[in-house]
């Protein structure tokens, strides 16, 4: 029996190009989520500066990371605080 016929009856889900397209779409999404270490470290410096205006923090313990899960990605920032700063306006 011709493969054309099988394809007509069962749809085109076996096409390897459909696999290619799905894989590509996913790969491109992940590629765009990547951020260089330089940028991440710049972000860390900026965040430390901003947070330090409001809290006394332990700079050495400040952690910044990007977590990738199945369907979402998150920027995770973790910092112990030593004390709150009370502004004297």
């Amino acid at each position: 029996m011709s493969s054309d016929f099988i394809r007509k009856v069962f749809g085109r889900s076996n096409d390897s190009k459909e696999v290619a397209k799905k894989r590509l779409k996913l790969a491109l999404i992940y590629d765009k989520l990547e951020i260089s270490n330089d940028i991440l470290s710049n972000l860390q410096d900026d965040m430390v500066t901003v947070i330090s205006r409001y809290f006394e923090i332990d700079r050495a313990a400040f952690k910044i990371d990007i977590h990738h899960a199945e369907d979402a990605s998150a920027l995770v920032v973790n910092t112990p605080i030593k004390a709150a700063k009370h502004s004297k306006h």
Binding site: S3, N14, D15, K17, E18, A20, K21, L24
Partner: peptide, 16 residues
């Protein structure tokens, strides 16, 4: 190959 579904078509590529 495009006709038998084993190569990305230009529509697929433009979409991506």
């Amino acid at each position: 190959m495009v006709a038998r579904g084993d190569m990305l078509s230009h529509e697929d590529m433009v979409e991506v």
